[in-house]
Design a protein around this nucleic acid. Structure first.
Ligand code: NAD
Ligand code: NAD
Lengths: 207, 207
DNA sequence: TTTAATTCGTGAAGCATTTAACGAATGACA
DNA sequence: TGTCATTCGTTAAATGCTTCACGAATTAAA
């Protein structure tokens, strides 16, 4: 995977979080916010916040803080890429919950279609998401210009689905299956493994 | 949060991943595995794997690799704390999917109870998980000895639920709400924010 | 106008984690 | 038996990220 950024990797998710908070503050009619205030809200340290923001340009005013709208615009221009179409593989328990999640029906992120093996689900429509058979993957991905696939099939089929996604030309995979998948370098993966999250949290607790 | 480990924080989730892979290899009748082979399966570099394992003790044999059972035992003894009881807040779309996830009905992780505001859901039983009203939180947490709470209520109620969890004596929170929550130092939180995961992946793609 | 207090921005210092380099152990095989 | 290739384990170097320290800018108020 290529590497040519001028800011740390871990700044990205924080910046995305700041964007969401700023949006919320804007909606509540606020105009300015300081790094200290953002720190209280997000749990990120104020210095870290200033450092993060300074990666993208000078936008704050001493003694006043940041103009919320300007900061939000700057952050969005820096890390918020344009809208993305997503396709969902597996409309089971998890797939259904995801299909119903309003944040995946926005301008920024839109689930454009789903794929299933189970013939009883094929042809159905869930929350505006049409369910197709697996033969349709290539054509639907092409038509919708989807970039990202969500892997929500049983873990036994995880690698098989990953191969299908790669073959269809998807560029990124969100993998909910508790199994590592092997894919070529030009495709990015994000594994979300709830069991590991739980056990890690448990390690943080007991010390 | 206390800090008294002898190995890096980031080793923990990797070790948990190794454990799962080893388990799988064992089930398939394998006896030995090398760091190179684990690297191919997990996507983690072989040096990193050897380094991780060396944190816990010398267990590998040059030229042969690791005896799978011995390695698994060692890792489990090091990072896999004893079983944990979990309670679920919010039995909506996501809560239902989680309640039906088999990995949360094991000896290691067990969802012991759920809590809801909606009276139509209270008293129901989903996959063996009883749904209680919010008044029952304290007594149920006490009785089940639950340590961790899952926050799967609408984001507007996120902080309120977090406060309830803290008051009930839970020691860790898995937060699915796309809102930072504020809690005292002695409680650990793990935020799982799917929207941010998506946008981060998208940043990895475009470069 | 001056002073004081606040808040940003940044270069340097400090940690944490990963990667590299390499010796030592082991088994395979001539 | 001795040689060779392989794989572990460890110390050191490199990289990446966070925190510190402090100057500069700005506003409020004396
Ligand atoms: N349920 C959860 O809360 C949860 C949480 C974390 C991870 N996961 C993981 O997510 C995945 C899905 O979980 P789930 O609970 O929704 O399982 P599920 O069995 O309810 O759903 C899987 C769906 O995938 C379909 N499917 C099967 N093979 C397929 C294939 N080859 N191609 C396309 N679709 C196929 C099935 O018909 C089914 O509808 C699993 O790998 C699981 O481990 C689930
Ligand atoms: N659906 C998804 O795939 C998904 C994905 C990521 C994050 N999330 C987040 O997870 C949370 C739940 O999502 P969802 O889709 O299940 O929402 P949902 O509306 O389907 O379910 C929420 C449930 O919580 C209950 N509830 C409301 N207030 C409550 C309270 N004070 N105490 C206890 N229960 C209460 C409601 O009765 C409802 O059953 C939301 O914050 C959402 O942003 C959802």
């Amino acid at each position: 995977m290529q590497r040519s950024r001028k800011y740390p990797q871990r700044t990205i998710p924080r910046a995305l979080l700041y964007i969401r908070i700023l949006d919320d503050l804007l909606k509540r009619g606020k105009q300015f916010v300081s790094s200290g205030e953002l720190a209280r809200i997000t749990g990120v340290r104020d210095v870290q916040i200033r450092k993060d923001i300074s990666n993208f340009g000078p936008v704050g005013k001493p003694r006043v803080g940041y103009q919320i709208r300007a900061l939000k615009n700057l952050l969005e221009a820096s890390v918020q890429k344009k809208a993305v179409q997503v396709v969902l593989f597996g409309m089971g328990n998890l797939g259904k919950a995801i299909a119903r999640y309003p944040e995946f029906h926005t301008e920024k992120i839109k689930i454009a279609a789903a794929f299933e093996k189970d013939p009883r689900l094929i042809g159905k429509d869930l929350n505006g998401i049409r369910v197709y058979s697996l033969e349709k993957v290539n054509s639907v991905v092409k038509r919708t210009r989807a970039l990202i696939g969500i892997n929500a099939v049983p873990k036994e089929a995880a690698q098989e689905m990953a191969d299908v996604m790669v073959a269809a030309g998807l560029r990124g995979i969100i993998n909910f299956c508790p199994t590592p998948i092997t894919i070529p370098d030009h495709v990015a993966v994000k594994n979300i493994d709830l069991t590991i999250e739980f056990m890690t949290l448990l390690c943080d607790i007991n010390p």
